[in-house]
Write a protein that binds this DNA or RNA. Structure first.
Lengths: 365, 365
DNA sequence: TTGTACGCGTTATCAC
DNA sequence: GTGATAACGCGTACAA
């Protein structure tokens, strides 16, 4: 798109400036070490050292070089530096979806921490597809990133095929899994205690006098949904309430299926509902309102994910907060630590965050 | 983190395989052209050509090389290729925020198109800060990306300082601005017709018999809010309704300010409200419901952004859809076209998308 | 048909 | 103090 064929005149700075300014159509190409060296009639290595304030270089040359560099706004080329250092300062983030509030907050957390450490974040969406997940990882694994932070696609979890992860870790690329994880891969992991979350929520409902508590979840291959369901079951049993299969709806994915939820409400009998995400919950509340039920007196609701929807829904929704941003920060921290650690000792940790119940108006206060 | 000091044995494939497999602790480092060349005792360029199926290379060598490469899963190093081609196949996306649904959908659109074209997306958040925007751009501009897609931070728009954009474009790096744009920079732009959006929404309310239509917007430095406000004003005037300043609330930013909105509702008299985003609108609906008003009979609502909130709120919210995903796709398309075009002719276009009114229950149907 | 040499931009080592 | 040289991994024009 541009070439840099103009010979710089080499008398004074403002003359250089001139030659650059009028370099064809005011195009100011990036300047390199070589350019500086040529203009100042010194060697490339001298320039390199001068810019690093090396003791080897005379005060005089250093000043000259640095002034010139500043004038032309010299910045080292990231790509060249990466090639040299074998460090890209990029983190690859592969997630199933970006429109879900939870993932969005995680990205924000990752971004925040990574940026502070001088890393960039490359985001790839698997869109719940195994193949896309694999392709994205392969693209990035060939030198583009120093490590991965990822949450598995539902298809991957359903399939149980983690070879792409295995390959990457075997190449020595650090990986941090969050939220939707697998125990079949040795790497750092960050999750919230989903089972506990399900337990706390269910317990809360029981304590409020609810006895016929329904559950809207997804099929068990989704690790998080499974854990939440287990918490639900445990809470019921702990309180001597039998688990009634007709009160449990398991949808194939986290995608909204209005018809099936509507059906479920027609046919099932309940005085409270626990949902594995906020969308199911808020939609369900709508159905309850349509039927003329009072929330939370006639029927109470709790969802997962403390998003905008929960906060601004009517009534506002009590939820199990997943602390996505914190999760992102921790993931980034764990990853960067691994990336920057020199030692080979492979010790992996799994960080489990405590879920928090955020009480709002869909439950009795 | 790993070294590749093992000398490969060079008898047969499965022997190579063996040496790799047991290379220290099952670490399989990435293989390079040089490695293949050494093992097969040919030159690097031969390997390079063979892998590209060059006609120059004998069928025999090609097969040998390709087999070996496949066996060890050779993939060219992205960084090296980037350095050579001066093309990174990365797109830098700089946006103010990622938790807003609109930006999220734009990213998805960008990702979709970019990925299909073999590009990765590096996401940076300015978090509405001018400084962060500048820093992020500088980080990426030093070779990390082929071009930028961005939406300006509110601080940048307030300041009116676009030198960081100017620098980048002057270096010949293509830029596409979307949504929050400035006309002071020559580059491609994608927006929706926000003025028209505001107009259509207001007109709709008027047609439904509303006369005291309020507006909740932000200060005018935010380009989109300003345009929406203009549409609102024009619609009122076109229908002979005077613009009543006491019915207009301008908040400093898009951030939620519950107190000020609540105040506004206490003191102002209205039978409909147009809001520049969905959060303001849904929150306002809550206030109206609290006051015992009926929606949409007593008071109707329209917001901007067709997100989850609008869809699942109660009542569901009529909105001006911004078609974020489409916007992202178009932005990516325009950018990639510029990146890949060889010609120097600098012609820039501004694509204006039509907003769409999505009718729901917060207005009369 | 294969190999040599050079360049992309940077850094580090070593020689002068 | 300064500079030449090699190296990171790849690609290609040019020799052989």
């Amino acid at each position: 798109m541009l070439k840099k064929s103009v010979r710089y005149s080499s008398v004074f700075c403002f003359v250089y400036f001139g030659s650059y300014l009028f370099n064809f159509i005011t195009l100011k190409p990036k300047i390199t070490l070589k350019d500086i060296a040529r203009e100042l009639e010194v060697s490339i290595s001298t320039v390199s050292k001068a810019l690093k304030n090396s003791e080897e270089i005379s005060r005089d040359t250093k000043e000259k070089v640095q002034a010139f560099a500043r004038l032309y706004n010299y910045k080292p080329n990231n790509i060249a530096v990466s090639l040299k250092n074998k460090r890209t300062k990029n983190i690859g983030v592969v997630i199933p979806d970006i429109v879900h509030h939870f993932f969005t907050t995680v990205i924000r957390g990752i971004e925040k921490y990574a940026n502070a450490k001088g890393y960039n974040v490359i985001v790839c969406l698997s869109e719940e597809s195994f193949d896309k997940e694999v392709i994205n990882m392969e693209m990035l694994a060939n030198g583009s990133i120093d490590g991965f932070i990822m949450s598995l696609s539902s298809e991957t979890q359903a399939k149980g095929d983690y070879n792409h992860l295995k390959e990457v870790t075997e190449q020595g690329i650090p990986v941090v899994l969050f939220d939707r994880i697998t125990h079949e891969i040795d790497c750092d992991k960050v999750v919230i205690d989903d089972k506990l979350g399900g337990y706390l929520a269910t317990k809360k409902l029981i304590e409020q006098g609810k006895q016929r508590i329904a559950l809207i979840a997804t099929d068990d291959y989704l690790s998080v949904s499974k854990a939440r369901s287990q918490g639900y079951t445990k809470a019921l049993l702990d309180h001597g309430i039998p688990v009634e299969p007709s009160r449990i709806l398991k949808l194939p994915t986290m995608e909204m299926d209005e018809d099936r939820i509507r059906d479920f409400f027609e046919t099932s009998d309940m005085d409270a509902v626990l949902c594995v995400n906020e969308i199911f919950a808020v939609y369900s509340m709508g159905l309850a309102l349509e039927k003329g039920l009072k929330i939370p007196e006639d029927i109470a609701f709790i969802g997962f994910t403390d998003g905008l929807l929960s906060k601004y829904a009517h009534p506002s929704l009590t939820v199990v907060a997943q602390h996505g941003e914190r999760m992102g920060e921790i993931s980034a921290q764990m990853l960067i630590e691994k990336v920057e650690s020199e030692n080979e000792e492979e010790t992996f940790q799994t960080k489990i965050l405590e879920p928090t119940l955020v009480l709002r108006n869909s439950t009795i206060n």
